[in-house]
Design a protein around this nucleic acid. Sequence first.
DNA 1: AATGAATGAGCTTTCATTCAT
DNA 2: CATGAATGAAAGCTCATTCAT
Lengths: 202, 202, 202, 202
Amino acid sequence: MNQAKIDKKKLIIEAAATVFADKGFNGAIIAEIAKKAGVGKGTVYEYFDSKTELFFEVFEWYMGFFTQSATLSLSALSGSIEKRLTELSDSMMKYWIDHMELYTLTMEFWAASSTSEVRDKFKEIFKNGYREFRGLIEGFIREGMEKGEFRQELDVSAIAASLVGTLDALLLQRWFDEEFDPVAANAGYIKTLIKGMKKEDV
Amino acid sequence: MNQAKIDKKKLIIEAAATVFADKGFNGAIIAEIAKKAGVGKGTVYEYFDSKTELFFEVFEWYMGFFTQSATLSLSALSGSIEKRLTELSDSMMKYWIDHMELYTLTMEFWAASSTSEVRDKFKEIFKNGYREFRGLIEGFIREGMEKGEFRQELDVSAIAASLVGTLDALLLQRWFDEEFDPVAANAGYIKTLIKGMKKEDV
Amino acid sequence: MNQAKIDKKKLIIEAAATVFADKGFNGAIIAEIAKKAGVGKGTVYEYFDSKTELFFEVFEWYMGFFTQSATLSLSALSGSIEKRLTELSDSMMKYWIDHMELYTLTMEFWAASSTSEVRDKFKEIFKNGYREFRGLIEGFIREGMEKGEFRQELDVSAIAASLVGTLDALLLQRWFDEEFDPVAANAGYIKTLIKGMKKEDV
Amino acid sequence: MNQAKIDKKKLIIEAAATVFADKGFNGAIIAEIAKKAGVGKGTVYEYFDSKTELFFEVFEWYMGFFTQSATLSLSALSGSIEKRLTELSDSMMKYWIDHMELYTLTMEFWAASSTSEVRDKFKEIFKNGYREFRGLIEGFIREGMEKGEFRQELDVSAIAASLVGTLDALLLQRWFDEEFDPVAANAGYIKTLIKGMKKEDV
DNA sequence: AATGAATGAGCTTTCATTCAT
DNA sequence: CATGAATGAAAGCTCATTCAT
């Protein structure tokens, strides 16, 4: 696939992302996606075999976007593990707040993982994504334990899972409630959790 | 509406719940719901004006189910606030694990809150549900602060939001990954968080 | 069929007449007719085999209503044939103006005569009705010719048909146009037509 | 809309006209219209938003057809007003007799004007159509009065209305009764009416 | 390669009719 | 007799997908 084709494909994916975000998989109409991408309806089928496949490629594009958010956040980290964990959490939260319009996509993908005809493909990718992300956080926590910042008897994987999940959960609560401030909630929660993780005399 | 009608309505709602859980709103076909409920297709429309309304009533039924889980869990609580918070969290988590087949409905409803034609109705109910639940947890935390179990400077609403959200988030991770144990993760995380909430000398 | 049954049957027919008049055959819903008649939906089927049969019985009731209008008008006639023809025409026109709400039924029945599944039954009755009515008018005209009021060379059946038809046609024009006065039009037209029918020296 | 689209649209309208004429609005099935037009069901919806809109466009096409009949008839007129009125009436009558298969459409449209969901649109067009046609005939009559062919005291609008209406009315009677000859009836009636309109010494 | 007119499978919904009570 | 809950055939309409240009 040459550059021109790659570009047009990406164009369609991004148009599709906004339409799927707004209307959901079923509510999204190929004609609208095509129009938004500035191409003909038939052209979409030059690049994607079916609506489902297009949706799936939007999912992959979205996951890349998410990975990017993590990578960006990670690259800026320094200092104590406590500080790094706090900053990572805070940074990713803010990144997503800035792209809230994509958050509805998250919910569509979650739903797709349970009701799509290709639910297993979605589940698999989500599973690996979460495992990887939890693994990353676990690494930080273990580093903190090794460095003596954190207590030894921590349930590392449990705490990692909750840290990862809080990102989802607070954004979700924000989605329903514009008055809810997920960044503040995250900060307050992280602070308390880390206090519970640290050695008492620290 | 007499008892017979109420029963049949509930029958249809429960059949619809399983079909919506399996296929999603759009994938669910009225004929299948009717068949599963053991009634004719037209009968569904005797009780519900439209597929959308049926979906919405399933949502309300589901929310009642959720409320029930909280009520049940709350009624059994006693002892210190720490103990109660831990038990509440643990109990609700287990309740949901036992009804995991309904968890896919949660995702459908989340998605509906962002892409359904009646998204605002869904959002509103979710918003109020989360506010109520957070308020409940906040009450516990404040009680713990008053009783001297917890530190005074806690960010109560932040911690409540994260506690509430962790329930969603860990079940979500379980949904994707059968090897992930949300009950264990919850226990480990709660323990650490509460440690961070408690007075240091306690 | 006893009196009670006859009465209830008539009750349903009259309720059906108003609903058919307002909604047309297809737009009319049995449930609405039943409700308007103050009976249950099933009761309608105690008296009529099908919606089509009910419609047809409304048609027969309506035709009786029309016959009645003619009978009423005829019974009051006296004087010269010219006077009688004028009065008959005028009287029937006024009778219908007073029952304009039934006029939409006329159009429904006309339509039924060309598109109903039992169109032939409708056509047959209309055919005989028009033949009878034309015959009646022809009788008057012939009487006028015999009495020397009218010229001998009149095309009796043509004039009778046009007199009969004008009743339909002017009411139709009134139906579309509330500003159109069919009574006045009828009077002006009859006067001229009769002038054309009379002996010149009269 | 390019020529190909116009042609296909007309193709569908004409197919629809025959089906509506035969089955009525409600009895007509889109699938049948599509099949008769030699297109797919979906194609009908490429050209018309709904069945109702298609019906309405058939109505407009039909009205144009009617206008054409008047225009054709008018263009051939010459001689005295009496002669012209007679010829116009005769010519239009014959035109419609030749297209009797479309007459059932007239009845459908009349019915639609009283029971369709868009009855007002139908009524409005009919109202204007009748007004225009009556105006045309009134013009002829007035011309005849000015030229001294007709008497001065005629009720012009009444006579015009009856002349216009007779066309409807005699075709209607023909519709019910194949033995009825509307052309002959029209001729006989016109002759007498015009005699009543003319100056006595003429 | 790009297009959009054409298609028909498939779904929701309506409502005449039935029949157990 | 009267009823209305239950039914499913039937039809309008949508939209992913195809394919001739």
